[in-house]
Amino acid sequence: MSSGTSPPARSHAPIFWLLFGAGGMLSALFGPALVFITGIAAPLGIVIPHDLLSYPRVLALSQHWAGKSLLFVIVALFAWHAAHRLLHSLHDLGLRIGPATRLLCYGSASLLTLVSAAGLLALGF
């Protein structure tokens, strides 16, 4: 327990925790269904038609503003969730978390966010 008379500095953890929480809720809600649809059901043509994820359909989805937002939110928030989880798991394993590890984890999430935003915007409306 830290001592001292001046009040302790405010942590910036809430930013990352909020992104982590949002990503966690999204991944819990959509993660398993997405794995099933994109990884199993669509390629094998079970339950849903085989061409559900065909190029023109997915292109149309990612060119519609709603589809675009959905894809962006899912990619970006999943990434922030994963980055935060990995960082804390490394800490739990006894690794000293310094600026480099933080940069690697949150930097990857930032990069993925930027790449997905740029890619989705490049596809046009």
């Binding site: 327990m1 009040p7 302790p8 500095a9 405010r10 942590s11 953890a13 800490h91 739990d92």
Partner: peptide, 14 residues
């Protein structure tokens, strides 16, 4: 709140 908001406040909890 300062004690809550600190890194050594609630934010060290996983």
């Amino acid at each position: 709140m300062a004690a809550v908001n600190a890194e050594h406040g609630v934010w060290s909890c996983t």
